[in-house]
Design a protein around this nucleic acid. Structure first.
Lengths: 194, 194
DNA sequence: ACAATTCCATACCTATCGATACAAATAGTA
DNA sequence: TACTATTTGTATCGATAGGTATGGAATTGT
């Protein structure tokens, strides 16, 4: 390994980029804002992350493993209802976390790109679809394990939960408080089948 | 009335602009796309509508009175549950209407603007907030009229319904079908209190 | 000590953004 | 016809977008 070592930490810079994308969306985040927030200059960004689109994808991975990890972890809850509860209450917390911008990077980014960033929108759409599938499969397992009524439609139920979570993301972006979202989650769970 | 008459119909042009904003969001819609869709050129647009922001506001008014009129009309339904039903089922239809872009102009536009268009976001936010208030007041009236249980929290209920509607808008923008959204609305209504 | 390699910084590229200046064209009025 | 008011088309403005070329500074292995 020869050559001059880089003077910044790639993960820290990626976290800063994530926050900018989170606040402004994909197209709303300019390279000048990104480089300023990351503390590096343009050529360093391109050398380390490729281009804006690759940077966004890497920030997205980091988002999924960090601030949005609750979505994956919720699937490990013991029953169908507890899965929904951990997902929706986790959303209420995460979408209004004081250390991060309000709202959801995925929802924010998906709706805020013109046709130039179509590949970004497709990427986010397929990620959401994949999550909805895994949620449906989790509910099917719950049905077999007996903690979800046999006549429930798992696909519809998964779509309902993701729809509410996405609506909560819109609410958070619009200024809803943590308490507001907790109540939405609670009312939704009170109506849980079975 | 002196001077050369304009060669285009202002309302038709506004409808075309509305559709472009609807598909691309506020910042995602460029003036070139707008003028091309409207069939006029740039100075004519500025002479007739002021600037991009004023054009968007006028398109927003036209949206509220046209494709999104169901939100206001739903408030006239006889009972609280029928109000929610008309709103959510109306959303399922409107958000997937074949003659219009999928999704909701308000949700799309609010999440897809950087800080440059902060006034646009505030405008959309206050419109949503105003609607949520009118929905709450409608529920309070329903409580007095006896078709909503006395222990229901009208503010929470209004927020829940708008949250689901906004989530449906995100789902529609992501490609959900009309049938998908109808089922979401139906499941939500099945859990209606009282 | 030297050369290879890598990084950082300035300055610049082309394309596009929203917004306008200007003059030709079209109408009503006298 | 002369005059005025308004629209329309072209051409362009300054600002900013994403993305690079270039050159010097810094750190490594030999």
């Amino acid at each position: 390994m020869k050559g001059r070592p880089r003077e910044f930490d790639a993960d820290e810079a990626l976290d800063c980029a994530l926050e900018v994308f989170w606040r402004k969306g994909y197209e709303g985040a300019s390279l000048s804002e990104l480089t300023e927030a990351m503390g590096i200059n343009r050529p360093s960004l391109y050398a380390a992350f490729g281009n804006k689109e690759e940077l966004f994808r890497k920030a997205l991975d980091r988002y999924a493993e960090g601030p949005a990890a609750y979505t994956r972890e919720a699937l490990n809850a013991p029953t169908a209802k507890s899965v929904a509860e951990r997902l929706l209450q986790g959303a209420a917390e995460a979408l209004t976390h004081p250390d991060y911008p309000p709202g959801c990077l995925g929802v924010h980014g998906a709706l805020s790109c013109g046709e130039a960033a179509e590949s970004i929108r497709d990427e986010l759409g397929s990620r959401r679809a994949a999550y909805e599938v895994s949620l449906r499969q989790r509910f099917e397992r719950a049905k077999m394990e007996g903690d979800l009524s046999a006549d429930a439609d798992c696909a519809d139920l998964a779509r309902l939960v993701t729809t509410v979570a996405q609506g909560m993301a819109v609410q958070a972006a619009g200024g809803a408080t943590r308490q507001d979202l907790r109540r939405v989650a609670e009312m939704m769970l009170r109506a849980w089948p079975g």
